[in-house]
């Protein structure tokens, strides 16, 4: 199908079409492909919704997410508490709204710093090769030998207190090896390209080559992995909070809210406590994954949709 279309274009009005296509940069092309992906757009809308909720949490939430009320514990939904209250008498809806802020913040920044670290180390390894590569790759091997979740659990158990900043740092310092390997592999293949040789032969600095020639060509895999990683991080935070190794109470996170459902009583009789954060996690992660898939297709030069 695709080839037929192309042939038609070629035969009918070649010059005009070529001009149009030439005026688009690869990035613009990718954007165009991305915007044509309906699922990705839905994902983008859902994610934007949660981001807006997170930003305006203070305005949306009717109560403080940490204020307890000992005389109103495990209350059912009412006009005062839209989703009832939890086992300490805190407003579930306010916690849900504020949880979006914490979960997205953690997801985004954990992803951001992991990517920053991964890109830095991956570029160095991929570009310089030799002993730099050897050193960094052995370091990644070392990190990957240790089971990721176990490593995080150990670190959290040792630490005196886990703040959001610390939590993000821990994740970034343990999650970088995967991305580093991907970037390195991309760089290794780019290194042999003629235009890189050309750039080098006219005396371009390493810095310039990396930033002008390597990174723009590697931006596809980076963005795709970054997006998918953000989803992973949100799940990771929820999972760790669920088992009590994440952000400690009373900070509202979706994982902390779901912990309540450990009790059969809550699970059966108080669905309003744990279903909404569960759906929130599901929707966010799904939205991010759709966006990630959309981006992968968009950046994939082999897909011509």
């Amino acid at each position: 199908m695709e080839t037929q279309v192309n042939q038609k274009v070629d035969t009918s009005v070649p010059s005009a079409k070529e001009e149009v296509e030439k005026s688009l940069s690869p990035f613009q092309l990718a954007m165009r492909r991305f915007l044509r992906n309906k699922l990705a757009i839905v994902g983008l809308i859902v994610l934007s919704f949660f981001v807006l909720v997170a930003i305006f949490a203070d305005l949306i939430a009717p109560h403080s997410p940490t204020a307890h009320n000992l005389y109103n514990i495990d209350a059912k939904a009412s006009s005062e508490h839209w989703l009832g209250t939890d086992s300490s008498g805190r407003d579930n809806f306010s916690r849900l709204v504020h949880g979006a802020r914490i979960s997205l913040t953690i997801g985004f920044f954990a992803m951001f710093f992991t990517v920053a670290l991964g890109v830095l180390l991956g570029s160095l390894a991929g570009y310089y090769g030799k002993w730099v590569d050897g050193l960094i790759m052995r370091a990644t091997d070392l990190m990957m030998i240790l089971p990721f979740l176990l490593l995080i659990l150990t670190i959290v158990a040792i630490l005196e207190s886990v703040t959001i900043t610390l939590f993000i740092t821990i994740i970034a310092l343990t999650a970088w090896p995967n991305l580093t390997r991907i970037i390195r592999a991309t760089f290794l293949s780019l290194r042999e390209k003629e235009y890189v040789l050309g750039a080098r032969s006219i005396g371009a600095s390493d810095f310039r080559i990396i930033f002008k020639h390597f990174l723009p060509n590697a931006v596809g895999p980076i963005i795709v992995n970054a997006t998918l990683m953000m989803a992973t991080m949100i799940i990771l935070e929820s999972a760790l909070s669920f088992i009590g190794f994440g952000i400690p109470q009373p900070t509202p996170t979706w994982g902390n809210m779901i912990t309540e459902a450990n009790s059969l009583r809550i699970l059966e009789n108080h669905w309003e406590t744990w279903v909404p954060p569960g759906i929130a996690i599901l929707m966010t992660v799904l939205a991010i994954n759709f966006i990630g898939d959309g981006l992968r297709d968009a950046f994939d030069p082999k897909s011509n949709q």
Binding site: T66, A67, H68, L70, S87, S88, Q249, P250
Partner: peptide, 13 residues
Amino acid sequence: NEVRERTAPIIQE
């Protein structure tokens, strides 16, 4: 002890 765990943030507040 979950009741005890819950009292901690309450005491803080």
